[in-house]
Design a protein around this nucleic acid. Sequence first.
DNA 1: GTCTAAACGAGACGGTACGTCGTGTCTTCGG
DNA 2: CCGAAGACACGACGTACCGTCTCGTTTAGAC
Lengths: 189, 189, 189, 189
Amino acid sequence: MGRGRPRSVERRRAILDAAAELALGSQTLPTMDAIATRAGVSRTTLYKWWPSSAAVLLEGLLERFHASIEFDDDLPVRAALTAQVDALVHLLRDTPAGRLLRQLMSASITDAATATALLDQWMEPRRHAAIHHLERGMTIGEIRPGTDTALVVDALFAPAYHRLIWGHAPLDDDLAEHVCALVWPAITT
Amino acid sequence: MGRGRPRSVERRRAILDAAAELALGSQTLPTMDAIATRAGVSRTTLYKWWPSSAAVLLEGLLERFHASIEFDDDLPVRAALTAQVDALVHLLRDTPAGRLLRQLMSASITDAATATALLDQWMEPRRHAAIHHLERGMTIGEIRPGTDTALVVDALFAPAYHRLIWGHAPLDDDLAEHVCALVWPAITT
Amino acid sequence: MGRGRPRSVERRRAILDAAAELALGSQTLPTMDAIATRAGVSRTTLYKWWPSSAAVLLEGLLERFHASIEFDDDLPVRAALTAQVDALVHLLRDTPAGRLLRQLMSASITDAATATALLDQWMEPRRHAAIHHLERGMTIGEIRPGTDTALVVDALFAPAYHRLIWGHAPLDDDLAEHVCALVWPAITT
Amino acid sequence: MGRGRPRSVERRRAILDAAAELALGSQTLPTMDAIATRAGVSRTTLYKWWPSSAAVLLEGLLERFHASIEFDDDLPVRAALTAQVDALVHLLRDTPAGRLLRQLMSASITDAATATALLDQWMEPRRHAAIHHLERGMTIGEIRPGTDTALVVDALFAPAYHRLIWGHAPLDDDLAEHVCALVWPAITT
DNA sequence: GTCTAAACGAGACGGTACGTCGTGTCTTCGG
DNA sequence: CCGAAGACACGACGTACCGTCTCGTTTAGAC
């Protein structure tokens, strides 16, 4: 029961914001040092609440963009899937989420903890939403039974992340629709 | 004018090998220090020839796996594409290339030079090979004209890289075939 | 007056004891943190009553060993002085006081407050007792008039402290007697 | 045989000087950080050559004051001893050595390595010189045979160090002579 | 054969960031 | 008013790599 000095919300905010700002202004993950300085907070405080700058960044990312998953069951299946992918494409291209995710993906590869967190809290929710629509489609007979949903989901989402990372091709406005169109004939009844 | 002491091939080998071994035994990129020590070479020599450990790793990777691109025009288009993707899947799963690429992709995100090199020397050749087959297919009327080849190539390859990075689903033996099957109906005439 | 919750004697005891135990088990002064933890007390409480761990240690030391000064005027002067030095030697060698004093002397050098306290409350009482006997000796004609009492006291006590600090020679049982014997011919009539 | 970049003498000098200056301007041992900053040298370099600031200080101290030991066998024994003690008193009072030694003694109490070094390289040489003269005195029949030289040496030197530490009495010009006078009757034949 | 320019080894050095520890202060609640 | 719990800023710690530098020492091929 709330003993001791309560954690300062202002500082938490300052830290999350500082991390995001630094990350957006650079290719590389901000250092704990830099975040602390920018946020006007001591390094000790940082380490007390987060194990790494990636964790700080991730927390800020999730807080800002947690509400970006489409679960509208009234939409036709294809439209729902397209909306999902389209939401992702816009997120990656038009919001800070894209740049932040790039760096978090880099960190994920070398740091297992970040990988787990990012997978569980970012990727999986989106994958599950898509799988949900696919299964709904199978139920109502719009999607071919026996479809490998995991694979379809990867086919839908992977190109967007791929282009985010490599930058070899743009994240077009119609990317989502085209990707869905590419996959749809193979999975519809 | 080959004046002066020529560069030692043995040392170059030792360095490339040391880098690969270290990378395979760890999640993170080896440090220049570690590579030099492992190769029995002075740090000076390393810095003389490569700007970063990622560059060392990349050079070794390309040297080992440059011959892994399928250009056989006698195969039917779909078989040729499947073979391409399948070759990639096996490379990523069954050879050191997978682990090395993971780390190089991480480095690419934060280091523009590595990104450029990896894109130009690893990704593009494979993409071009696939595009070549797609265009061949359009020429012989097997592929629908007007197909967005860049998108199709991403749809074919991205899932494999995606699973390499995230590890959320396995790089199955039949992944290549399934991915091609998923895309094929939408692009064939 | 007497308002509010009175100070807890148990905690004071626990703190003094914890400090002494920690000091005896280490070369270095215990930290405030460690004392608080060991005593099962919050750091706040510590800082409320003592400015430093040296102060805690000193208070405990004085409490335990305040009664160790010989003022028996019935003894002959030389015997009284010898008894004084002997008491000190035994204190330094056979009781916790030795180890505690070592650390307090270390702290005294860098911290003026500790130095003053230790000087006033530990050194001076003992010096005055010795000076008292010397002056008594001068009064009864046993000690040469005009003797530099301050110097003699230093000559008597300093070797013991010196050996405590450096450990280059043992604090023998007969150290006190030998030191007195060394000085006596020069000060007796 | 001198491979690699040779160690910079200037930096070594700058470090030793910086440490001494900082120590003289403060009660407490300088931090490694402060020494590095003051010397215009990186912390890494400091840690490469010395394990602690006490070690830096000690090296500087020994370098400056190694030549302060009197070994003149032509002097009468008592004069030689008095000269020894007098040299020490002047060193402690009139040169930086006094303040530096204070802090080194403090460090010695809590750090075994410093203690050993200081004992071996500062105390022992001086003690041996004094013992040498005492033994010479015994040989020529001026000092009573069977004299406990170790004790006499402590009686001669300890008061000076004692006053250095506590500051309860001054290091007078005639301190050396008085101390010798105090001890002499008991040891001369 | 010698000359010579580059490759190479050894290691010093300045830097930046790391993650931890101890300090002393402050804030909030409960006895 | 005492005390517990704990957040916080600060400063120093000792370490790891980084990239650069300054030497001395090979060594193959040009002369």
